[in-house]
Amino acid sequence: MSSTLTSHIRTEPTWIRIILTMLALLFLIGFLFMPLLLVFSQALDKGLAAYFKALLEPNALAAIRLTLLTAAIAVPANLLFGISAAWCIAKFEFPGKSLLLTLIDLPFSVSPVVSGLIYVLLFGAQGWFGPWLQEHDIKLIFAVPGIVLATVFITFPFVARELIPLMQAQGSEEEEAAIMLGASGWQTFWRVTLPNVRWGLLYGVVLCNARAMGEFGAVSVVSGHIRGLTNTIPLHVEILYNEYNSTAAFAVASLLALLALITLAAKSLLEWQLHRQAQSRAND
């Protein structure tokens, strides 16, 4: 009697719980599962042959290569930057710290199209550095370097944003302990700081990679949409869709969707694996 009474006191009535659960489920289905399902069903609408034909077409392959290349440059660059920014913000006090924090958030607060435009205004033919670049025969805008630059800018905050709160929460006592025990700054970083933030770091890298591959707005502005040369996967999808070639568009789009699923799976798997490892080592 008393236990049912307390459970009534502590939880909501059954009908409220059911309604809330249903709401959440409906939302998930409507906004996440349905679109995902639609992407794959549209892609495979005209059979597997058409699907693979769209993927193996030279322009599609070029777009895939360019996307991979962009991510391969942008992710390590922002990994390095993110760690160093988080390290100095979380562990040291210096003037201009809050300004740096705000600057790191800039790519989040500015529309991607504007970020792309900034690069056009800086490095385009009519831009500030345009004449100098032309003189030296360096092409940034409407070329691969511009796409990489824009992507680096857009994915700038992911790693740093993930690490800063984590490092701040952990404080610097472990680092101080390491130094007191005779470790150099480098040893302290590799043996103490980095292992402590590895989960946050991995998470940041996964998010950074997903955004680097999926970025549309900024890249669209600086790309110039030259088929087979300066199209990334998202841009290629747009072109195909505008040409009413929706099967091919969804086929290529399914790659991005697949990438997202793989990213998620890899992340969960890694976390589970490492957790198990720590447990089994602990139980020895």
Partner: peptide, 30 residues
């Protein structure tokens, strides 16, 4: 680093990702 001082922190500041053995070995390994 060069003072040769042992310091015990209030909240211990043990390296949480290392075993007890590796924690104690740290000062020798570095």
């Amino acid at each position: 680093r060069d003072r040769n001082v042992g310091f015990v922190f209030q909240h211990y500041a043990l390296f949480r990702h290392m075993t007890v053995f590796e924690n104690i070995a740290f000062g020798l390994r570095v």
